[in-house]
């Protein structure tokens, strides 16, 4: 497995605060680390991951076929659900039911569907700030992100009247206005048409490069992964099959993978 070749770990398993040195550069501890994760739903083990870490500033892509457990892994890492077994650590501290809210408030998630709430675009983008009780500076931050995603003119429009692309831009602005320590993206471009997707992907790449936001991207589409990711994890059957840079994965790993879990390099997965 590529994992062992590329990464060297010094574990402090008790606290989860490990030091990881990567050939390509990171020397600080992970923002998020999950250990010995097991997720069982309706008697079926759908996720079994021994160890996974997300490092500051990286864009980690989790790829795999349908039913691989990608979205489940994302909800666990984003602390939206607790695993059946195992633990998640945020900046070295274990996430518990007691501290989960404060941890969630350091993160933001964008799903495949925009999932906007009833209200205007501005109300939606401001929502996370309002929930955190942030009033000072909130309007300026909202304006900044409305502008960056080119939706300032939609500010007063009701969310349910937006097109798919506009709604997804709103969802991305709603997440980034929070200036999260970690941004989770669960196939956020999958429901968009090709033109909208390419345009938004290009803009979003620029935004991520500028902000340096640590990102976890779940995707079906390797072209998205190539455009955004700095590191890739291949997940299949609820287990990590391989890990590496997008180039390493596409050259070294994908040809060796079973056909059933191999991604289509120009689009979705063959499954």
């Amino acid at each position: 497995m590529l994992l062992n070749k590329t990464w060297r770990r010094r574990d402090n398993l008790e606290s989860g605060a490990e030091i990881i040195e990567h050939k390509q550069g990171f020397s600080s501890g992970p923002v998020i680390r999950a250990k010995d994760l097991v997720v069982i739903k309706q008697g079926k083990t759908i996720l079994k991951v021994e160890d996974i870490s997300v490092f500051p500033g990286e864009v980690l892509a989790i790829v795999g076929p349908n039913g691989a457990g990608k979205s489940t892994l994302l909800t666990i890492l984003a602390c939206l659900e607790f695993p059946t077994k195992g633990a998640v650590f945020f900046r070295g501290h274990q996430v518990t039911r007691k501290n989960v809210l404060s941890v969630r408030r350091e993160m933001a998630v964008v799903f495949q569907e925009p999932l906007l709430l009833d209200g205007t675009v501005r109300e939606n983008v401001r929502l996370g700030l309002s929930l955190r009780g942030l009033k000072d500076d909130a309007e300026r931050r909202v304006d900044t992100w409305l502008e960056r995603f080119g939706i300032t003119h939609l500010s007063g429009q009701m969310a349910h009247t937006l097109s798919g692309g506009e709604a997804q831009r709103t969802a991305l602005a709603r997440a980034l206005v929070l200036e999260p320590k970690v941004l989770f993206l669960d196939e956020p471009f999958a429901s968009l048409d090709l033109m909208t997707k390419h345009g938004l992907l290009k803009e979003f790449r620029g935004i991520l490069e500028d902000s340096g936001t640590t990102t976890v991207l779940v995707s079906h589409d390797f072209s998205e992964v190539r455009a955004l990711a700095t590191r890739v994890i291949v997940l299949s059957g609820g287990k990590i099959q391989a890990e590496g840079t997008p180039d390493e994965i596409s050259v070294d790993v994908l040809p060796k993978l079973k056909e059933s879990v191999r991604p289509n390099l120009t689009g979705g997965w063959k499954n």
């Binding site: 984003a78 969630r104 799903f111 709430l117 009833d118 929930l131």
Partner: peptide, 26 residues
């Protein structure tokens, strides 16, 4: 409601009271 909306509201950092208030509003 879309089941993922509940996850989205939680992901936005809603406390339990804020969560239920937003669900009721929706």
């Amino acid at each position: 409601l879309n089941p993922k909306l509940r996850l989205q509201i939680m992901a936005l950092g809603a406390s339990p009271v804020q969560f239920w208030w937003l669900i009721i509003k929706e």
